[in-house]
Nucleic acid binder design. Structure first.
Length: 457
DNA sequence: TTAGAGTCAATATC
DNA sequence: GATATTGACTCTAA
């Protein structure tokens, strides 16, 4: 099983243009006819079928580390070069929907961060890329699809012409649009920008809000608690992904070749990202939130406050590290805002996330809550992101061997490219690095000791 | 139970 | 029309 031999052959299979792949044809062409594998969703689509006895899962399990970023990059190139759509590619090759493909191509996770299931599409992509014929095949499919579409369209046009009038009234009566039935489909919730802003601010204060906090948020925002919960889930994971890709890009810039080496990447991305994908992933980017409690001092440095005890001491170091960032006018309000709104810090503390909730208290408080808002938006600006990026700025330090720590470190570490941007002096950075590593270390310890307090940011 | 991962699919945007 | 975004769902693991 683990024989190096099989691994080797697999490596060849996956990494090199392998003849074995020629396969696909048969299995592919048949499904192509009309239905783009899509529906088969769970059934394995792809051109792998020819791959013999090895199921995709097996392939994945045995696959050597793949350069996910490189793979997606190539796929994107191929798709655009050949004018192939994500939908077709996703449905026929990956067995995924267009949205998933888009997401995957835009924000691939590094291999080591992927679960077996998550690796599947990348193996498929790699295999697909390996055989240039596959592009041709896909193009054929595209043509066929087009033909089929035209056919359908023609026939439906004539159909609709004949029953146009009636269809209006029919609508529900016929299965065509089984819409109202039990109104099975819940309308999609679309959060208003202010709501998102508020949630983001809340996130900055507490990436892992307690149920109580969630309820408060839900109440304040007039949302369902489940929506708030889901939003936090999504936001967290998307922020993470955003970070990974930025790390990779940063790494690619600073060190040409290796596209996917996991750790030791700059964290500049975290702040500059503003890629707005995940809608705000931009600012905070509390990368390994869970793993390190990072966000506490990293982007919402303010948060650490409170908690007292060990946490307090832990964060006071972080505070220091953050000091300069704070000195910048823009970030200042940001930090202060959070600081103040976190005045009572723990879960009991009402989150002041809505701009209008600022009515309470005195001016300073209102300033605080609004400043969180303004702070964030400024956070989004390139300018400020640069300033803020100095916060976690550190040079990666030696220490810690665990992967976890490494990745955490990488979040704080600065690639040369990134660091060259700001003028911070090295000693200061090193000092911060040490401090932050210290924080990380202690947080991890605390975590393993199960001291919940420590994780309440 | 909760969080993370992977997706879907509706909607927004280009 | 293609692609990007994002709320929600499902599954898995701790």
């Amino acid at each position: 099983m683990s024989s190096s031999e099989s691994v080797k052959s697999l490596t060849e299979l996956v990494q090199q243009p392998c003849p074995a792949i020629d396969t696909s044809k048969d299995s592919k062409t048949q499904e192509s006819s009309e239905t783009p594998a899509s529906e088969s969703q769970s059934t394995t689509p792809l051109p792998l079928s020819g791959h013999s006895a090895l199921s995709i899962q097996e392939l994945v399990a045995m696959s050597p580390e793949l350069d996910t970023y490189g793979i997606t990059k190539r796929v994107k190139e191929v798709l655009t070069d050949n004018n192939l759509g994500q939908r077709l590619f996703g449905e026929t090759i990956l067995g995924l929907t267009q949205g998933s493909v888009s997401d995957l191509l835009a924000r691939p996770k590094p291999w080591h961060k992927l679960s077996l299931k998550g690796r599947e599409p990348f193996v498929r992509m790699q295999l697909w890329l390996n055989d240039p014929n596959n592009v041709e095949k896909l193009m054929d499919m595209k043509r066929m699809e087009k033909k089929a579409y035209m056919k359908r369209r023609h026939s439906s046009v004539s159909d609709s012409q004949s029953c146009e009038t009636s269809s209006v009234g029919i609508d529900y009566s016929q299965g065509a649009s089984p819409q109202p039935q039990h109104q099975l489909k819940k309308p999609r919730v679309v959060l208003a920008p202010e709501e998102k802003e508020a949630l983001k601010r809340a996130y900055q204060q507490k990436p892992y809000p307690s149920p109580k906090t969630i309820e408060e948020l839900a109440t304040q925002l007039n949302l369902k608690t489940s929506t708030v919960i889901k939003w936090f889930h999504n936001y967290r994971s998307r922020i993470l992904r955003e970070l990974f890709i930025e790390e990779i890009q940063a790494g690619g810039q600073s060190q040409a070749g290796s596209s996917d080496s996991p750790s030791a990447r700059s964290s500049r991305a975290v702040h500059s990202s503003e890629g707005d994908s995940c809608d705000g992933v931009d600012a905070e980017g509390p990368p390994e939130a869970k793993q390190s409690g990072l966000e506490a001092d990293e982007y919402s440095n303010a948060t650490p406050k409170s908690q007292g005890g060990q946490a307090e001491s832990v964060f006071e170091v972080g505070e220091e590290a953050v000091q300069d960032a704070r000195s910048s006018e823009k970030t200042e309000s940001f930090h202060l805002g959070i600081m103040e709104s976190l005045e009572d810090t723990d879960d009991e503390g009402m989150l002041k996330i809505m701009p209008n909730s600022a009515t309470e208290e005195d001016a300073s408080t209102s300033a605080a809550s609004t400043s969180v808002l303004t702070g964030e938006s400024s956070y989004k600006s390139k300018e400020s992101s640069e300033k803020i990026s100095s916060v976690p700025s550190t040079s990666s330090t030696s220490a810690s061997g665990s992967e976890k720590t490494n990745s955490i470190q990488s979040l704080f570490s600065f690639s040369e490219a990134a660091s060259s941007k700001n003028t911070r002096d090295n000693t200061l950075r090193k000092k911060k690095a040490a401090n932050l590593n210290n924080i990380i270390h202690r947080l991890e310890k605390a975590a393993s000791r199960e001291e919940p307090v420590e994780w309440e940011f």
